[in-house]
């Protein structure tokens, strides 16, 4: 994983990373990925991916409204609010 890749992934993940860190991470992530290449030795053709460990089946909930919940409490955690809205830096369309 080179610096360019690290910077590209960092952009995707919205992580500000300075140049020095980027170089260090590139080296570390390269070593990690190199180590992870050992998986290539395992033949997995035809093996179904296991997104979950068990044979779980999804269950649903009835379409019912719960009593009004803690909207005020949730907004209390928001750093900036305005007239009941969450205020964020200007989005450029």
């Amino acid at each position: 994983m080179d610096r360019t890749t690290v910077d590209w992934v960092a952009r995707l993940a919205r992580l500000e990373i300075d140049e020095r860190t980027s170089a260090r991470l590139a080296a570390q992530l390269s070593a990690i990925l190199e180590y992870f290449r050992s998986l290539e030795q395992l033949a997995t053709a035809g093996i179904a991916p296991a997104a979950h460990p068990g044979d779980l089946r999804g269950s649903t909930r009835p379409d019912e409204e719960a009593a009004a919940s803690a909207a005020a409490q949730l907004l209390a955690n928001v750093p900036r609010t305005r007239d009941g809205f969450i205020q964020v830096p200007r989005i450029i369309e």
Partner: peptide, 13 residues
């Protein structure tokens, strides 16, 4: 990477 790991996970199970 990701899918390969999920397949290996199946092998562990």
């Amino acid at each position: 990477y990701y899918l390969k790991a999920l397949r290996v996970r199946r092998l562990f199970i």
